[in-house]
Design a binder for these strands. Structure first.
Ligand SMILES: [Zn+2]
Length: 273
DNA sequence: TCATTCACCTGTCGGC
DNA sequence: TGCCGACAGGTGAATG
């Protein structure tokens, strides 16, 4: 259930295991996770390809190949990319296995099986979600003015607006709630009634919580792990997520949980306006 | 066209 | 203890 900081940590931890390695072959235990091309075609097409580097955009990982093609990977809710020594038992819930040159393999594990992989060419605009991604947190493109313009004429609630990956790339349920707490704004506020000053608070809140998540190698609640099977430490620093009924760290008021945009959302009724 | 809800899966937890 | 619904770091399709 990785969001930007978790996916970035996977990218960082995966690189040393796969950079320069050749894909000798694959085993597709759950072919439906291969969205493009058809699984049989995919299996043949990646054989012999050399991985040059691992990239990330929003919650997507890109494994670039020497011939300018790339594997586009989305971990969705419970996906993980794990490196494992040849000869060691494969990790549980392995759905796709990539057999590499060298002494390790790469396993795409996924309890809920929502994860996706595609093999794309450099100019393949085939994944609409990937193509539509908005600016990254912590980038100069993410400004109060950008968000204010984008929200003009929209009637959505702020949290749904933040979760839309075409607005900002990489926010998910945890960091959206945390960013809203940092910004002092309720998840239910209509975006067309957010002031210029508040949009700046949103930008600052998003950047702050994402930077903290990155520093702590992500948030592990239940399943998330990086390519080495390491957990993230950020859970200790969460202010509101999963703290329904507990006292606000800032004011002591019990935190409230409601459903917004179909997701559990926790906020402080005193600190967030 | 836009906003909201549902469906995709598997596992876990709380209430009865 | 056992069952059963609600829920879980996400996202596109279906629906209104
Ligand atoms: Zn408070």
């Amino acid at each position: 259930m990785p969001e930007l900081p978790e996916v970035e940590q996977v990218r960082l931890s995966l690189g040393p295991h796969v950079d320069g390695k050749t894909i000798l072959g694959v085993r597709l235990d759950l072919p439906k996770m291969v969205h493009y091309p058809a699984p049989e075609v995919f299996a043949k097409a990646v054989q012999g390809a050399q991985i040059t580097r691992v990239g990330r955009r929003g919650k997507y990982l890109t494994l670039h190949l020497a011939d300018d093609r790339y594997l586009l990977v989305h971990l969705r809710m419970t996906g993980a990319l794990l490196a494992g020594k040849k000869g060691d038992p494969e990790p549980p819930y392995t759905r796709l296995a990539f057999f590499l040159s060298g002494d390790e393999n790469l396993y795409f594990t996924d309890i809920r099986t929502f994860g996706v992989v595609e093999l794309l060419g450099q100019d393949d605009k085939r994944d609409p979600g990937y193509e539509a991604l908005g600016p990254e947190p912590l980038s100069p493109e993410l400004t109060a003015e950008y968000l204010r313009q984008l929200a003009k004429g929209k009637s959505t609630v702020l949290k749904a607006f933040l979760l839309d990956q075409s607005h900002i790339a990489g926010l998910g349920n945890i960091y959206a709630d945390e960013a809203l707490f940092a910004a002092g704004i309720r998840p239910t506020r209509r975006v067309n009634r957010i002031t210029k000053k508040e949009w700046q608070q949103v930008v600052d809140g998003v950047n702050q919580v994402i930077a903290q998540g990155l520093r702590n190698h992500g948030t592990t609640f239940r399943n998330y792990q990086d390519a080495n099977g390491e957990m993230g430490d950020n859970v200790k620093y969460l202010q509101v997520y999963h703290r329904k009924g507990k006292p606000c760290f800032r004011c002591g008021t019990p935190l409230v949980q409601i459903k917004v945009a179909g997701r559990g959302s926790v906020y402080c009724p005193h600190c967030q306006k």
